[in-house]
Simulated scan of single mutants.
Amino acid sequence: MITGYIFILSAAICWGLIGIFSSLAFAQGIEPMEVAFWRALLTWICFATQAVIQGNTRIDVKDTPLLVVFSLFGISLFYISYQYAVKTGGAAFASVLLYTAPAWVVVFSYFIYKEKLTRIKIISVILVIAGVYLISKTGGNASGSHSIGVVALLSGICAGFCYSLYYTIGKHFSKKYTSANLFLYLLPLGALAILPFVEFTHKTPLAWTALISVSVISTYIANYCYYIGLKCLEAGRASIVATIEPVVAALAAYILFGEYFTFLGYWGVLFILTAVVVTIYEK
């Protein structure tokens, strides 16, 4: 169990650094769209190597349509929206808004799977909405007296929506494929969908370091650690431990970039993370 906690914590820390590495790339003149593209492509190289070595390259042709949809929303739109959330709202802001995902899952489950709306689920959704409202109205960066812009807010919520697909569509595929096997096909499709919108720029060694870090450390290694941890811990506990991700992001963003929330903003963060924990606990 201790080993499981170590791997899950490692995954959360790696995920929490996505915004930090992305911000470093932005500072070197790389635009969000290009960061999203390289994240998909470089991470694909890692997963493809693992899949080939392990011999996990099979795919059921019947799954192709859903794989394409998952790739467009779970990779292309997710990576793009998250990068824009980081650039326009800050690393901590983007990480917190990512955790609106469970609220989306509750909504999907009600309308698509006809799951019952329990009191806990309703409270969780209300907490998420209240949390997003407080954060959006009280600022999420070093100029904490200003409201978050529309682009930042929509990008963050969109990222949370796309991330929720990993709980629904991703869960469906996890029964048939390993993560390496699944990402072997998802990532190149996602990268190709982003490619037409990318304007490539000259990259300094620091820019390449940031791009490689967000791909290898914050995506591939994070995913690898998380699934190793799941072998030692039940999914509920692992998910709760993983909520340390926005805490890591907030601390790193404050130390490196001076980003912070206002008093009410931190209450908004608490509302969102509380909603995540109680939703997971109910399951």
Rank of each mutant, 00 (worst) to 15 (best):
A142I: 10
I80R: 09
L264V: 02
T219D: 07
S143W: 02
Y110C: 04
L192M: 08
I112L: 15
T274P: 14
T100K: 05
Y220E: 04
A275E: 04
L17M: 15
L184Q: 10
H172I: 06
F173T: 07
V269R: 02
I169A: 12
Y167P: 08
L41Q: 01
I129S: 11
Q54S: 15
W104C: 03
I221Q: 03
I157Q: 00
L72W: 00
T243W: 10
L117V: 00
A142T: 10
G236L: 13
I280Q: 05
L189F: 05
F93K: 11
F263H: 08
K203V: 12
N223F: 11
S145V: 01
V68H: 04
G160F: 00
S71K: 04
I120C: 04
I129A: 15
F173Q: 09
F271I: 00
V86N: 14
L127K: 07
K171H: 14
G144C: 05
L41S: 02
A242M: 14
V214M: 11
L192N: 04
I6Q: 06
Y133M: 06
G29W: 03
S218P: 06
Y226L: 15
T279V: 00
L230S: 01
K137N: 11
L154R: 03
Q54G: 08
G90R: 08
L211S: 03
L41E: 03
T201I: 02
V216A: 08
L187W: 00
I126Q: 05
V61G: 06
L256R: 03
T168H: 03
D60W: 00
A242Q: 14
I53D: 13
Y260C: 13
I240L: 06
Q28D: 15
T138C: 04
M33I: 15
I221F: 06
A48T: 06
I135C: 07
V277K: 11
L184W: 01
I240K: 13
S239H: 09
F47S: 12
V107Y: 08
L77M: 10
G144Y: 14
L192K: 05
L72M: 07
S109V: 01
A210R: 14
Y99F: 13
N181T: 05
G89N: 03
Y110G: 06
G89R: 04
C232Y: 15
